[in-house]
Computed example of a mutant assay.
Amino acid sequence: MTIELIDEIILTLLIAFLIDGFIGEPPNKIHPVVQIGKIIDTVTKFTKNISHKKGENFEKFMGSILAIGLPSMVGLIVYLISVQSFHILGTVIFIILSSIILKASFSIRAMDIHINDVITELDNHNLDMARKKLAKIVSRETSTLSESKILSACIECVAESFVDGVLSPLFYYGFLNTAGAMAYRTSNTLDSMIAYKEEYYMHYGWMAAKLDTIMNFVPARISPAFLIPAIIICRKDWKNAVMILKRDRNKVESFNAGIPMAIMAGGLNIQLEKTNHYKLGDMNEELSIQRCKISLKITKIAAAICVIGFVIPITVILNYLGWWNVFFGF
């Protein structure tokens, strides 16, 4: 039996974006990613101390089970929900459930809100509060940052989040539907929670860090295809974005984050700096609140280009090849 699912897949994608734009994040009590975080926290507390006593190799082994097992389990559960909802509950319920699940895997509005909260404090010349609000979205020490360093951190966060918060989940949705998007989001959540390079997580979070790097590898490298056209649309310096991308993308310790960050630095003609770690771009223009706002605009346009120019075409091609009938068991 052959059933055309492409309309439902595309409609799910569009509804998920509408949910993100007009509603935003669900309450923490029912947010799937928050619940996944609680599972990670519980499992880590239970297994970390036990594995630590048995040596670093066993600690890596236990951390690897969590890093591989949890995304696989989440992906499988979401896959079963998707398939069964379509077969048993029908098209409408399938679209509603899929849209809600997909929305949980990415976030554009939340980043916009967080960055604008910091910008508002800077506008009000409240540097201490701006530092505190920035600390909610970055891992670096913020208590002594100047206004320019705060703006740099904001723009870096916006650029990096385009890949791991938007492009990557959409990439995996394009090939593996909501199961792929949520498996990725689980892996990324593991990375953010247990893949710190501090001593406590050095071995336990090793596999989580590796898998997140692997899963972001392709999305990070196709991100210029969406960010650079967005920079052109915003009438910023796309040629400099390409130049800085080539020159500075490897200056960041992260294997993937340097790509979108270098593009943003070049496109805005600014220098992004994390003290004692890296400098991306040239200070041709001063860091400003206006440029921070433009970075948000660039990523929103890039997300739209990604959906229209990549995700939808990929799902259509896979539909033509019969992939979705195989995937959903028809």
Rank of each mutant, 00 (worst) to 15 (best):
I101L: 15
V43A: 10
A110D: 13
Y196S: 12
F226R: 06
A241I: 09
E25V: 13
I155W: 00
H125G: 07
E199G: 07
E156P: 08
P219G: 06
G180H: 01
I317P: 01
D237G: 03
R109D: 13
A302E: 05
L190R: 01
N188C: 04
Y184T: 03
E8R: 12
L14P: 02
L145F: 00
T178P: 06
F255Q: 13
K210V: 14
H87D: 11
F226V: 08
S99M: 05
D282P: 00
K293D: 10
Y320G: 01
I15C: 09
F171K: 00
N188G: 05
I39T: 08
T299V: 14
A104S: 15
E56V: 12
A183Q: 07
D248Y: 02
A257Y: 04
H114C: 08
R221S: 02
I150H: 01
A230Q: 04
T91S: 15
V33Y: 06
I314L: 10
F255M: 11
I301H: 13
A262C: 06
D128H: 11
F171W: 03
D191P: 11
E56L: 15
D191C: 12
E273P: 01
M129V: 14
L145Q: 02
I77V: 15
S152Y: 00
T120K: 15
M283P: 07
P313I: 11
S139E: 11
P32C: 08
I9P: 02
S107K: 06
A302K: 00
L5T: 05
S107A: 15
A67I: 03
S51D: 12
I150E: 02
L70F: 01
A181L: 07
V252Y: 00
I244L: 04
I308M: 14
V74H: 03
I93T: 14
F328A: 09
K239T: 12
A220R: 01
K251N: 15
E8F: 14
S64K: 04
I314P: 00
I115K: 01
V158Q: 02
C306V: 11
K149N: 14
D7S: 10
Y172G: 08
E4M: 12
G90E: 04
L176S: 08
A67P: 04
D41V: 09
G69Q: 06
G309L: 13
D191E: 14
I232D: 03
C157P: 01
Y278W: 11
S143I: 08
F106S: 03
R249W: 05
P260N: 07
Q84W: 09
Q271E: 10
S146K: 08
L134D: 02
K236I: 11
E198P: 06
D20Q: 01
I36C: 05
I289T: 03
S148P: 06
M264Q: 04
L268I: 13
F162H: 10
S187N: 07
L80D: 10
K45P: 10
W324H: 13
N269T: 09
K236F: 15
F175Y: 02
T142G: 05
W238K: 06
L70E: 03
I81P: 01
G55K: 01
C157H: 07
L268S: 02
T144K: 14
L134R: 00
R249Y: 09
G322S: 07
Q35S: 12
K236N: 10
R247Y: 12
